[in-house]
Nucleic acid binder design. Structure first.
Lengths: 230, 230
DNA sequence: GACTGGTATTTGGTATGCCAACTTTCTCGA
DNA sequence: TCGAGAAAGTTGGCATACCAAATACCAGTC
């Protein structure tokens, strides 16, 4: 018997399927293009896509099927596949659902997160304590997104994490645009600080309320000033 | 020109795609089978399915792709498609996400729903005011599901409606099973009555809290007594 | 009889071809 | 010149063919 313990092979090749690769490529392309700049809806050509991706139509279609189910594209029989432009009211609805889930995550975090995990909120987001975010708006936009994702991860609920990660893809652009309107950034920072303090105090009711009101405030803002979406 | 206004044709033939038909058939089959009775995971054979459905593998695969994205099945390369059995902690996580969304729907309903719509809650669910639901458990289980769906529809948020409708498919069986354990049915009725009253009083904070606690109570119950799921 | 190695079969992944419906372009007559 | 209609070209939906990996089966050896 050969001493097989002496062979240390690589764990696994784990080469992803073409479908997964096509999905990643398409999703990145869709989220990176700013859909709301285009006047008309963007149409995707299955044959061109499979040509550009270097694979056949089959995995492309299966990837598009997933994207349809996630609300990114829409199939029209014998007309084409179109990238969906969300209406203002749809965006508002997504932000409301987001608020519901993030506020629940905050509630769960109050009992589940360790002190070390909660400390990450302050450590990783020092910019929340500085005065003028408008100078570094791009960085702050990213930090803003990360802050909300961090709260959700602290909730340690995979279902909430998965659902919100999808919603984020749709809302990311709008959230950042709204930050630049009016005096929202400064307000946003104050609210974030209050949320951190409530979490550190492990006050579930307060944390939940603050997160919810923060989110619903964004929803109201989009409702009022988001007419450019339609 | 023919006066086309005089013709009132049927809206559209709207013959669904085979993919949609396959999706409906598979989803119904999956939700109707009780997955948790089976010892092993159930494997689906693409070729047998397409044979039984009378279509080719292509639309079947596309339907399965959607079901995978919804968390009902799992593809294993060159091994098969398996119906997913959720673990207890996954069920708990889904109930928590559900509670977040339903409580937000209740909050929204307080400002959005008309008096007539709120009245439907009492009219359609008279059994909540009767004493012994255990005699008609099946009917009560259905009414229970309808009650929660009604609250969500009163919230008038399409995103919340869509997401919860998916969660419901996964949780339906467990919710009904939990009702039969211990004295939960009677408790459930009392809580439903309190929720109706809070909504009728248009007390958003109270409605939200009652709905959330009702849901999280179910989550705790499954957490404690749902060991049969694993 | 158990084990090894190879071979046949099964099965999901992918590529390709065909079709019907929709668009666009061309044609021809008023 | 213009428009109706036909023909040609697109395009997504579906079916089918083929491939590689995984499994099942079998023969041969010790």
């Amino acid at each position: 018997m050969v001493k097989s313990e002496m062979f240390h092979v690589k764990p696994i090749v784990a080469t992803s399927s073409l479908r997964a690769l096509a999905y990643d490529a398409l999703k990145e392309a869709i989220t990176n293009m700013n859909i709301y700049d285009q006047k008309d809806e963007v149409r995707l050509d299955e044959r061109k896509l499979s040509l550009n991706l270097g694979v056949s139509r089959t995995p492309v279609r299966e990837a598009l099927t997933v994207l349809e189910q996630e609300g990114f594209v829409r199939f029209e029989a014998r007309r084409g596949v179109f990238v969906i432009k969300k209406t203002k009211s749809e965006i508002v609805a997504m932000i409301q659902a987001w608020s519901a889930l993030e506020s629940m995550a905050a509630r769960l975090a109050c009992t589940r997160a360790t002190d070390e995990q909660l400390a990450c909120l302050r450590e990783h987001f020092p910019e929340f304590y500085e005065g003028r975010p408008s100078d570094h708006m791009d960085e702050y936009s990213d930090a803003n997104i990360r802050f909300h994702q961090k709260i959700i991860s602290l909730g340690q609920c995979d279902v909430i994490r998965d659902i919100t990660s999808n919603l984020l893809m749709h809302v990311r652009g709008i959230r950042n645009a709204a930050l630049r309107q009016g005096d929202r950034a400064a307000n946003s920072i104050r609210e974030h600080v209050a949320i951190i303090e409530a979490l550190e105090a492990r006050d579930a009711d307060l944390s939940e309320r603050l997160v919810r009101e923060h989110g619903l405030g964004l929803a109201r803002h989009v409702e009022m000033y988001g007419d450019y979406l339609d």
